[in-house]
Amino acid sequence: MSAKGIRIERLSKRFGEGDTAVLALKDVNMHVAPGEVVGLIGPSGSGKSTLLKCLGAVIDPTSGRMILDNTVIYDDGWKVRDLRALRRDKIGFVFQAPYLIPFLDATDNVALLPMLAGVPNEEARQRALDLLTALDVQHRAHALPAQLSGGEQQRVAIARGLVNRPPVILADEPTAPLDSQRALTVIGILNDMARRFEAAIIVVTHDEKIIPTFKRIYHIRDGVTYEEAGEGRGFT
């Protein structure tokens, strides 16, 4: 069984102890292959954020197994030692709001990640510029976030999520602040990047406009996921 991309098996997360314990995730299974973009949909309180935090190695699952790019990250209480480096090198994040660093220009916002990983400044900036060019915001490369439009900010944020070429990208409501056209553009970019960089992308969304674009969708309710085939419209 391939574990390229990201695979989780029987992943559970419990908050609290005893009578007050809450089981936020119950034996969740999920696999996203490289180059694939899947949707994760569920109502508020269903466990979406908890699952995203577990996938992002921000919180530890209580039990279960998680394999990222053929590397076991969690295994029933065991976890890799340096989660910070794992997040930096293996996982890309795209948030609902871009959350760009306000005092860095677009290029340096993107180049910061490879710089943190020890890539020389010039090489990191070149990598950032290449991505900004791919996302068609190269003309705003030296603009501060406050000088960018919402769509430009989101594209810069996507570039930041991709710059270290992580095998997994987690996108949390990436189209929420955008209109229909821009939302579809962003999803198009994510699909394009998934193919180009062989990244497994999980998009958490409520956005009705983009749900039909996924080929596969994971629904989550009360901490339990189930999978269904999506329509996969618009992107091939």
Binding site: R88, I101, L116
Partner: peptide, 16 residues
């Protein structure tokens, strides 16, 4: 605070 959270999430060291 939000930027610091983002920096930590993307792997910035505490000492940085």
């Amino acid at each position: 605070i939000r930027e610091i959270a983002v920096l930590k999430l993307i792997g910035t060291r505490n000492r940085t």
